[in-house]
Design a protein around this nucleic acid. Structure first.
Lengths: 203, 203
DNA sequence: ACCTGAACACCGTTCAAGT
DNA sequence: ACCTGAACACCGTTCAAGT
């Protein structure tokens, strides 16, 4: 609040006149980021539509990575209610054949997979002493004992700083492009299987 | 910090002796929650193992829902490095046939899907005025215009307070059991398709 | 309608001093 | 080794007063 006031060259209290509280301001910021996720056109297969949405969403989030915690990890973000986005996902999943409860479940999977991955990819580092923290974690990663954790030890060269939990940079400096693409593909393949099972059950 | 000190009936400054900084304390808390996710046994198909892990993880997180933001949305959580968990996931994905880059991608999908969903399910409400906030959002949801957003309007009875973005309670008071189960199943089905494609490409 | 100026309550952290 | 007691810097918010 005080920083914003300083940036605007006004007194701290002035900000409160425009926005009631700090939470309200953060909600507005999150809403603004959510709002500029434009939705793909409907002239493609539903599978391609989902993947396209994943990519657009990542582009939008990437422009303001510091906002990600608000979107994924706080219910505040909902206040914005990006109806175009929600409606688009639902419309597309209906095309895939989902209805009622299966539509709900497919929708929740899409949103959780999309925003969940991005929340984690761009999770901020500890504000305190990022460099010291990164060094410590990197060190700890290298002390994995091959006899206790053979798979981890073996995979370490591939995983180090590229895999969740085993990294010391976030998506801002170490983007996870390939994994994000794969994640989107896996979600779509899984939804496809679910849709087929639904159709078969329906007769 | 001050609350903890009060709870322990000591002066605020006393806490700093045991833990250097607030961030360090939060990292320790996150680590403690991560640490009590025990890993399933290896005597089941890899698909069942992944689903079992999803369930165990949710149980652990559910016991301390307020910690979820630390786990999903902050890189601090990594500091704990739950090696048993990471090694277990890798070992299981190796059983499924993944290696090198495909192992990395499959691993990232599993972790993001698991922790990402939980982060969102248990995302905290705005601390400020939860009731007022919930009322406002519920109201806004009901003003969706059917001509502008037909799919959303039609699905609203099913989605209201049960779907991401369209809810005003979090998983503590409104658990998303069915969607979580479905999400796990979709991830496994998607991984399965990926594994088959890998095998085929390998010859 | 929008900002000033001062004040208040709160909170993480420091540090010299105690035991 | 562990805590006290006081102090400091910082930050979101309030409010009467200005224009």
């Amino acid at each position: 609040m005080r920083d914003i006031a300083a940036r605007l060259q006004v007194y701290p209290a002035s900000v409160q006149w425009h926005v009631k509280t700090k939470d309200d301001l953060l909600a507005a910021v999150a809403g603004s980021v959510m709002a500029d996720i434009s939705v793909p056109a409907d002239d493609m297969p539903w599978q391609a539509w989902i993947v396209a949405l994943f990519r657009r969403c990542r582009q939008a989030v990437r422009r303001h990575p510091n906002v990600t915690p608000l979107i994924g990890a706080q219910l505040v973000s909902n206040a914005s209610l990006p109806a175009d986005l929600v409606d688009g996902v639902l419309r597309t999943l209906e095309r895939a054949g989902f209805v009622d409860e299966s539509l709900l479940e497919a929708y929740n999977t899409v949103i959780a997979a999309m925003l969940g991955f991005l929340t984690m990819e761009f999770a901020p580092l500890p504000a305190e002493n990022p460099q010291r923290w990164a060094d410590e974690l990197r060190e700890r990663v290298h002390t994995v004992r091959p006899l206790d954790h053979p798979s981890l030890a073996r995979a370490l060269p591939v995983l180090a700083n590229r895999a969740f939990i085993v990294r010391w940079e976030n998506g801002v400096t170490a983007p996870m492009d390939a994994s994000f693409e794969r994640h989107a593909a896996i979600i779509v393949a899984g939804l496809d299987a679910f849709a087929r099972a639904q159709r078969q059950a329906a007769g």
